[in-house]
Design a protein around this nucleic acid. Structure first.
Lengths: 120, 120
DNA sequence: GCCGATATATAGATTATCGACATATAGACC
DNA sequence: GGTCTATATGTCGATAATCTATATATCGGC
C-alpha cells in the first residue's frame, strides 16, 4: 500500500506517458510537448528521459509502437489493453497517495509558516 | 517552474520530515512512525533512508539536532528558521505541481479506463 | 546555404533510495 | 538470569532512473 519514494518519479513519468496516449496514438516528441502543456509546465519529460521510458513501456507490453512510412521519421505509440489496465491501477494508487500528501501540504501552508508557532 | 522528477522523491521525503518536526521537536524513529501514520501508510521512511536525510537537512541548516542526556539514546530535531522558510516554499511548489497531476489522474479515472474508448 | 524546430537515440555521470548489516538499551515474560 | 521484541541510530554496497551532452537526420523559412 505504501508508495516507494525511490520509484515515485519513475511512476509519475510513466503514468504521464501512458495517460498521454490513452485517447490517441502519438509519437514521442508530441508526448513530451503535450505533457508539459497538460501539466502547465509542472512536469517535463526531457528527451533523454522520454525515449528510454517509451522503450521500457513497449518492452513491458503497455504500449505498441509503429514507424510511420510516410513523411517524417516518427514512431507512433498506442496504448495496449495491458497498458489501459495499468493506467487505471496506477491512477488509483497514485491518487490516493498524493491526496494524502496534498492534505499535509495544505495543512502546512495554512498554519505552519509562521516564524514561531505560538511559543510560551 | 518545472518539477524535476529525478528529485521529486527526495523532495517529498525531505518535506515530510521537515513538516513532521514543524510543531514539536522529535527524534528520527518517531518521525518515521508519524509520517507513516499521517500519510495513512501512503509514504514510509525506511530507516536506511531517514537517517541520511536527517544528517543532510542538519548539514543544510534546516533542522537542528540535540542528543538527549537522560534515558534512551535519542537525537531530538527541531526546525530552524531557515527550515521553516523552506517548508513554506516547498509546500507551495509541490502543491501546485501535484494539483496538476491529480487533475490528470482524476480525468483518467473518470473517463479513461474503458477497454476501448468509443472506437468507430 | 544556413539555421532552428522537429524527431529519435544512446552513453556517462550523478545521486538518492533500499535492503542488509551492525550496535545497543529497555521492558516483558518465563 | 536468559530470551525476545521494540526502540533507536548508524553505515555500506547495490540498484536504478534521470539528466546533460552528444549524435544523426529531415523539414521549412529566409
Amino acid at each position: 500500500m505504501s508508495l516507494d519514494t525511490q520509484s515515485v518519479g519513475r511512476r509519475i513519468n510513466e503514468l504521464l506517458v501512458l495517460s498521454s496516449v490513452r485517447e490517441e496514438a502519438k509519437h514521442g516528441y508530441q508526448i513530451a510537448l503535450d505533457v508539459e502543456e497538460e501539466t502547465g509546465g509542472a512536469f517535463e519529460l526531457q528527451h533523454g528521459t522520454l525515449y528510454p521510458i517509451l522503450h521500457r513501456l513497449e518492452k513491458e507490453g503497455l504500449i505498441e509502437g509503429e514507424w510511420t512510412e510516410e513523411g517524417r521519421r516518427r514512431k507512433e505509440y498506442r496504448l495496449t489493453d495491458a497498458g489501459r489496465r495499468r493506467v487505471g491501477e496506477e491512477a488509483g494508487s497514485l491518487s490516493s497517495a498524493f491526496d494524502r500528501l496534498l492534505d499535509i501540504l495544505e495543512e502546512v501552508r495554512r498554519v505552519g509558516v509562521r516564524p514561531r508557532p505560538a511559543e510560551g
